[in-house]
Design a protein around this nucleic acid. Sequence first.
DNA 1: CTTCCTTTGAAGTAA
DNA 2: TTACTTCAAAGGAAG
Length: 348
Amino acid sequence: MPQLSSGGGDDLGANDEMISFKDEGEQEEKIQENAFTERDLADLKSSLVNESEINQSPNSAVRRGQQAEQRGFAEKHREHLDGVSKQQDGGMYKTPTYPGYPFLMLPDPYLPNSSVSPSSNKVSVVQQSHGMHPLTSLLPYSNDHFSPSPPHLPTDMSQKTGVHRHQSQDLSGYYSLPPGGVSQITPSMGWQSQSVYPALSPCGFRQPYPSNLSSASSYSRFSHSLMLGPSGMHPTGIPHPAIVPPTGKQEHDQYDRGMYVKPQVEPKREKEPKKPVIKKPLNAFMLYMKEMRAKVIAECTLKESAAINQILGRRWHALTREEQAKYYELARKERQLHMQKIINPKFG
DNA sequence: CTTCCTTTGAAGTAA
DNA sequence: TTACTTCAAAGGAAG
């Protein structure tokens, strides 16, 4: 099954990544993105603290209401997204200056199969074949330098609730391995480039990345078997979640419907020897969060995960593509490892 | 003790 | 093909 993918190149996730920069359709936002200042944090904090005051929502969902407050930012963005996506055809994206979607302007070279012509903002987003057997992703990996085409063009943006829902494109191109086994995966960082967002202030949440996150180029080629350290520690230093023995919290979920059989809600399977559960691999953002959470906590003296995640979400969007690319690449490897484990649970 | 919250992304399912 | 849902992490808060 050579090359099932047509849109191929994109990486699981690699494409989407770029979309993440939401809303920046507006200058105001542009500025905001750059200015993750303490003010943001303050807002966040205050919104958390003042919940009761701010929120006077009559409905019972008091807490919800407040969270809505907190989410104002994100939702605003989403709204913008909606607006933006609506305007796409209006040529909104014709201006290369559109900060939020720099990748939109990427030329064909970024698109493996050049399925998209620059003239059209429409990308033939090759939706990954869901019907595809999971393992097919482990098939030959065709692109030597697979370029996670940043095809996430606005078209891709979900019409949904405003949330960008980029479908990952053809995984096969990324997961595919040489018939013999483990692949050589080439990071496809070709598309990354200009950093859209300037450095931010300290609690503005932009800090130099730890060196343990070697740049993608450092593992331009790797084999799955090498991805895990002796102790199951991910090379990045981020503990590999899927390897972690069940802690009792969420081990119940044998997620991946289809691939995993959910324990049919055994009403109470208590006291059974807990089998290690293969958890979903962390996506790029999760990896990012895992790495940066402690830092944010330290910087901002926040403990509440919800608030921290909000901050991290914003910081995530403020990352440059290069920076995000690292995590997308890691996530891709995570998924590959995950697949390996599914195939051979002993793996890892 | 369990669930919620909050974030993004991957992947499955339903229509 | 699109829209929707679930689950990954995390830890305080709430029920």
